[in-house]
Design a protein around this nucleic acid. Structure first.
Lengths: 142, 142
DNA sequence: TACAAAAAAGATAAAAAACTCTTTTTATTG
DNA sequence: CAATAAAAAGAGTTTTTTATCTTTTTTGTA
């Protein structure tokens, strides 16, 4: 459904949302450990999320990544769009170049409902909504 | 969601189901044209579906692929399992190694419903059920 | 029996995704 | 100001996926 990069990006972002404040930044190494992902790969992904303005980054000693109130209002879909583009919104589940109400693939109408549910899953909660249950250890990132 | 190979496999199988009988076999080239996919790649995929007993194949002049009554009772999920293994049934949508009711990822319970819908989409109709609307040109494979 | 058609098998190639390493830049702190 | 910590940048590697090409085997038919 999502690329490995995107899975890591989502988990990394949720981790930073849970652990960081503008004063307390989280380094790539710590993120990698926190979500059980390869360190250098996470570094690249975080760099990307920084470019796309989904997180802040600070260089130098005590630097790292953090999110502010604004970032916390983003949704998982913002991460997905940044990393995997709009495939989830656009692409036919059977790979047809065009698949529409007029020229549907054999599962078009069944998939449409699933797609709407996926979109709801990634759009209808802000990043901030996930931190509570992470803190309570009701949900996990590794 | 599915690999490219799996998308092709599903479309190829539906195409063969629509066009073949035990007497009238469909060649890899014809399948490739019929679903707009690369010929040699389709040949490999069909070879695979043959090994996995999802289609029959006949060598030599007038040979090709066909499905019988038994094959028509299979579902898309049988193709998916043959080509992509059981990821759709098993894997965490955020890539956690273990993701369960006890140690769920942050979207576990939302995704669970989606996953059930996906499984229903690929399990609850036999291959034979798709040929009618293909024949009526209410659905398309390319 | 010779030829041709088609899949099977296997090798190879190209592209993309996943992952790693090195160097540079920036900033903090002793 | 020197040392150090951390991200940025960029190059490189490995693995997987996608796709192609060539040779072999099988089989029907002239």
């Amino acid at each position: 459904m999502f690329s490995k990069s995107c899975e890591y990006a989502i988990r990394a972002m949720l981790f930073v949302a849970q652990k960081s404040t503008p004063e307390i930044r989280i380094g790539a190494k710590e993120i990698a450990k926190g979500i059980d992902a390869p360190e250098h790969f996470i570094a690249k992904i975080m760099q990307d999320l920084g470019k796309k303005k989904l997180v802040h980054s600070v260089k130098g000693p005590n630097g790292g990544f953090y999110v502010d109130e604004h970032h916390l209002k983003a949704s998982i879909s913002d991460i997905v769009k940044a990393v995997d583009a709009n495939g989830i919104y656009m692409d036919c589940v059977l790979g047809l170049k065009v698949c529409s109400e007029e020229t549907p693939c054999p599962v078009h109408f069944q998939y449409k409902i699933i797609q709407e549910n996926i979109i709801q899953m990634i759009e209808n909660q802000a990043i901030s909504a996930f931190t509570l249950s992470l803190n309570l250890e009701n949900t996990y990132l590794k």
